[in-house]
Amino acid sequence: MLGYLTKRLISLTLSLAVASLVIFAVVEIAPGDPAAYMLGINAQPDTLAALRSELGLDQPKAQRYLSWVTGMLTGDFGTSYTYRAPVAQMIAERLWISLPLALYALALAALIAFPAGILAAARRGRPADLAVMAGTQLGVAIPNFWFAMLLVLLFAIKLRVMPSGGFPGWDEPLDALKSLTLPAVALALPQAAILARILRSSLIDALGEDYIRTARAKGLTRWQALRRHGLRNALIPVLTILGLQFSFLLAGAIIIEQVFYLPGLGRLIFQAISQRDLIVVESVVMLLVFAVIVVNFLTDLAYAAVDPRLRR
């Protein structure tokens, strides 16, 4: 197990190093001078030069890469070109919305998907299975922004039990949670549908295995055999999907953020790209890459926890 952990950690560090290099290089190659963009087309050459040196754009590339990386390691992400504010602080503010939202949505998705997937697999071919399959088909097919609008119409406008958008801040935890609920539901629905389908098919495969027959021959009921022997064996593909979904939810919620007026990471990166705020783009992308790699690392650990054959 220790060897496995070391191997995964080494691969995690290497991935991060390679990712930071690639991100830096790509942003460098992208056309457009941030200093010129910030000052507008009528800027004087000497002001431009002054700004370039202030932003550190006149230094050699290797040095800029190094100072960017070491800065990030100490929590200093640099200063936004457009807002003139520390990037770290901007990201932190947004992360306080996006991270809870992603976790909330993921928890909801799992909460819906597990019972639905298990029920469908256990009642394969019967009405319950058909209902779950039809429901998940719908869940995958409906665009989440449209579903989000329906939720607003029903719960915010008609019933007036939920806020229609905005975020009050975490000073009022209950209100904050309330304002994240509709977006989380909208995000969770398609994810839950995908997850339920994966779980169902993976569980049906597991239930066809010889060890389930062995379990039944030992005197376990159908349900006991499913719970004790089928479920854990069916988890590996489900964990893979869960890991991918988390990474997606963290930054991919941009449309939902737009619908609910949530100042999340998705909106931040969208604005930064349109304003050519390269340092923000770099940092947010790096943060997302970091999140994906860490989640993959955690998924690998989860695999090993589930399956003893992988612990080497």
Binding site: D210, T214, R232, P308
Partner: peptide, 26 residues
């Protein structure tokens, strides 16, 4: 079914052909 569950594994034991897959790997 409930009565059969008590018989299976209790009063009747069964051995299968394929030992490589008859056990739960986890």
């Amino acid at each position: 079914e409930a009565q059969l569950c008590q018989i299976r594994g209790g009063r009747i034991g069964m051995i299968f052909q394929e030992p490589m897959t008859a056990l739960n790997p986890l």
